[in-house]
Design a binder for these strands. Structure first.
Length: 277
DNA sequence: ATAGCTACCTGGGCGC
DNA sequence: TGCGCCCAGGTAGCTA
């Protein structure tokens, strides 16, 4: 569910409330949520203090302060993960709480995840990145994001451009919603071969992806229902600004042509046959 | 090496 | 009302 803007909303919320907090207790309520954890996650977390949360694409991690400066709590929200912060006295009533961490200052962090694709793990840092993030490409908002490198990599892919945009080892952070929106803004059909797009076309779609995700972030992310919420349980408002995603059969906002819905790489894909060529 | 399919889950909505 | 089917914002891992 959550793509880069939604994960960044969560990261900012955590940065505000979690940084400097110390873990006092951890309860695992569903073992699948810690399936990649080596050993006992409670043992790996209790007594440690959270540094400022960081993010690459849809991947989130919270470095653990000394005495464990080489470790971090790695978090992936999967399709339906939420990080909710509550006073310990006001626990969320969700039936999908997978992990809870009691912190000092009377805070509880709850990991809620209906579909259990998300996970937590305490992992080793490898330089500035946690091990599970090492193979993920920079996202378009990072200092180290290199438009030419990403364009070049896309140009050499013999696959449909929509599929390539979803490949997190090429450019990270783009998911199904923002891939469709970026291709609409760039005027490119999702099934076009990446290999036969011009470099200016490739750069246009990458910059469109960055723009649409920046706008979504300003509005608190995209929420279709209560599944995606920030650390305070609130929804974002970008869903009302989507031009093609979820609008199959409706009129294009630009030209009133009917928006088509097809399947690309097994994912529902929306485009305007008039505006996108 | 690369591209593409499948599995991993739960739940909501739809048609019968 | 209920059952079965399809769909959903992600990714790892397998196969060709």
């Amino acid at each position: 569910m959550p793509e880069l803007p939604e994960v960044e909303v969560v990261r900012r919320g955590l940065a505000q409330h979690l940084t400097g907090r110390t873990v006092e207790a951890v309860r695992v309520l569903h073992p699948r949520a810690v399936r990649d954890q080596n050993g006992d996650i409670a043992e790996a977390l209790v007594g440690y203090t959270f540094a400022e949360p960081e993010r690459r694409g849809k991947y989130l991690w919270i470095p653990l302060d000394p005495p464990h400066p080489t470790k971090a709590l790695f978090v992936h929200l999967g399709m339906s993960g939420q990080m909710l912060l509550n006073p310990t006295t006001a626990q969320p009533s969700s039936t999908h709480i997978r992990i809870q961490a009691d912190l000092d200052a009377g805070l509880t962090l709850s990991f809620i995840d209906q579909r259990t694709f998300g996970k937590w793990a305490v992992v080793e840092m490898q330089g500035s990145l946690p091990l599970p993030v090492a193979h993920i490409a920079p996202d378009p908002f990072e200092e180290c994001f290199d438009l030419s490198w990403a364009s070049n990599k896309i140009k050499h892919k013999h696959s449909e451009i929509k599929r390539v945009l979803l490949d997190q080892t090429v450019v990270s952070g783009i998911g199904n919603i923002y891939a469709d929106e970026a291709l609409f803004r760039a005027g490119i059909r999702p099934r076009r071969s990446a290999h036969f797009l011009s470099r200016p076309q490739i750069q246009r779609v990458l910059l469109a992806a960055r723009d649409v995700m920046a706008e979504a972030l300003e509005q608190g992310g995209t929420s279709f229902d209560a599944l995606y919420v920030n650390v305070d349980g609130e929804s974002g408002y970008f869903a009302r600004s989507l031009n093609v995603y979820g609008r199959g059969g409706k009129q294009c906002v630009n030209c009133e042509t009917e928006i088509r819905k097809i399947v690309v790489g097994g994912r529902g894909t929306h485009y305007c046959p008039q505006c996108q060529r």
